[in-house]
């Protein structure tokens, strides 16, 4: 009974969604109906929001990758919030699974996996670091870079059942990275005029040392995401007594 009702509701929902999606046109965003209005003085701009990003990213932020520029600069506040959500979740996980570390025996992994993962780990970590350092030049950035680092530690957890993240080190890393992010934002308030505003020289677009605060913030995010994701995986892996 419950299933039938659910199927009917879900199909109705499917139909509604499809009908509504057929109204969306994949339009060019340069068209007139998308021209935005400035909330503070009420004036109309003669471009739309996406076309502003596309034509001005390089001059305004110095980043080549427009997505990175939006994530770190234009909508950096969202990213601060997002990092905070992850931080909240990591805190919640360790708060709720606090005293469950225990010693049920797990089967040992075989030798090849063990030695191989030891060999591969530095390369995985390097790849992760590469991804988040080059975030403003190539696809990628702090989040995938951090995830790659976490997957390196995940591999270690798989091959060594007794491998645990050092809790103190992880928590210090994540707080230092978070503090860096928020502090750079406050420095923007001090040296420039608003929170998270860029206060460093933009440099030549296309080089590593360019785009002002973007690389610094992305490195902080990379460390933070990497340590939080590995600590989450570590906590969930633990065996209860």
């Amino acid at each position: 009974m419950r299933k039938v009702v659910a199927i009917i509701l879900a199909s109705a929902f499917f139909a509604v969604l499809l009908v509504s999606f057929s109204n969306i046109q994949q339009a060019d965003y340069g068209e007139k109906e998308y021209y935005y209005q400035n909330p503070i003085n009420g004036s109309y701009a003669n471009e739309s929001v996406p076309s502003h990003y596309i034509s001005n990213t390089k001059n305004e932020t110095g980043a080549v990758n427009a997505v990175t520029a939006i994530v770190v600069e234009y909508r950096g506040f969202d990213t601060l919030g997002e990092v905070t959500v992850l931080f909240t979740a990591a805190t919640g996980v360790s708060f709720l699974l606090y005293k469950t570390r225990g010693g049920k025996k797990r089967t040992e992994a075989n030798l090849i996996l063990k030695e191989g993962s030891k060999l591969v780990l530095p390369f995985i970590l390097l790849t992760g670091a590469y991804i988040f350092i080059h975030g403003h030049l190539t696809p990628g950035g702090g989040f995938p870079g951090g995830a790659v680092i976490a997957s390196g530690f995940l591999l270690m957890m798989l091959s060594y059942p007794k491998f645990f993240m050092k809790e103190r080190a992880v928590s210090v890393t994540e707080s230092m990275a978070g503090i860096t992010f928020a502090f750079i934002g406050l420095l923007g308030l001090v040296f420039a005029s608003s929170f998270l505003q860029n206060f460093l020289p933009l440099g030549d677009a296309g080089y590593i040392l360019s785009a002002g605060i973007i690389p610094i913030i992305y490195i902080a995010i990379g460390f933070k995401v990497g340590s939080e994701l590995s600590s989450i995986a570590d906590k969930l892996k633990e065996v209860q007594k």
């Binding site: 990628g140 995830a147 995940l154 989450i232 995986a233 969930l236 065996v239 209860q240």
Partner: peptide, 27 residues
């Protein structure tokens, strides 16, 4: 044409989410 999102979804959405699901199901 969303390479950034593709990398992130592959590593976080597919990889890590599945890993923690498997851990949790194991427990």
């Amino acid at each position: 044409q969303a390479p950034d999102v593709a990398i992130t979804e592959a590593s976080i959405g597919a990889g890590l989410t599945m890993a923690i699901f498997v851990y949790a199901i194991g427990r």
